[in-house]
């Protein structure tokens, strides 16, 4: 009997603890971590350095230069696609439109779509594509650069993008949406073809926007 009371008590405590943790929910930082020792007042302090997106430079659908500076003090969602993609891209774009619609009036949020087929997806093609989706270029950048440069930056977003003649459309890529914070750390990856994962992304964006 006594054990019963104790265990009920413990369960109640655990429940509260669980709730408390839920309130403080923070998003993880994805990618490799490094530590660096630093001497402060004669004591060694260990700093953790999180994986961050390196500086970049692209051209967007309006022929504007888009760099890391464009995303200063913003959180953003990145993805990789190509305009002639016959498989998952339209689905990804219809899901990303939901994110756009929800955050289009929030100055702290941007969207960055990289083409992985720069030979076909010229600035004009990207311009037409964005226009047809009816999105503002100041909020949603469709960007291009040299192929190797794009594939290299994809690795920094922890996704794979490659040419593959056996795939429909000629490219292999995953349908991930990547959430990046104001320090360019990656805070989440979501399957951009699934509505419920995109709901999750939008919730995580709210959490990230409230982060101090």
């Amino acid at each position: 009997m006594k054990t019963n009371k104790i265990s009920s008590f413990l369960i109640i405590i655990l429940c509260f603890w669980g709730c408390k943790n839920d309130n403080k929910h923070t998003l993880p930082k994805l990618g490799m971590h490094q530590t660096e020792d630093r001497i402060v007042d004669g004591k060694t302090v260990v700093d953790t350095i999180y994986h961050a997106i390196p500086n970049f430079i692209f051209t967007d659908q309006d022929n504007n230069e888009i760099t890391s500076e464009t995303f200063k003090n913003k959180i953003y969602v990145a993805d990789f696609f190509f305009t002639s993609c016959p498989t998952i891209c339209p689905k990804m774009k219809s899901q990303l439109l939901r994110v756009y619609d929800k955050f289009k009036d929030n100055d702290e949020v941007l969207i960055l779509s990289h083409t992985i087929d720069p030979e076909h997806d010229s600035v004009e093609v990207l311009h037409d594509y964005a226009n047809r989706l009816g999105v503002k270029s100041s909020k949603w950048h469709f960007v291009t650069a040299d192929k190797d440069y794009i594939y290299n930056i994809a690795e920094n977003y922890l996704v794979s993008a490659n040419q593959d003649s056996t795939e429909p459309g000629g490219y292999i890529h995953n349908g991930a949406f990547i959430l990046v914070d104001k320090n360019k750390n990656i805070r989440g990856q979501y399957d951009g073809t699934k509505e419920e994962e995109v709901n999750h992304l939008m919730k995580d964006m709210e959490i990230l926007l409230n982060e101090k």
Partner: peptide, 15 residues
């Protein structure tokens, strides 16, 4: 549905 939408509604002016 992947491109034309599950209700055949299309995707904005793209599809």
């Amino acid at each position: 549905g992947n491109c034309h939408g599950n209700n055949g509604e299309g995707l904005k002016q793209l599809i």
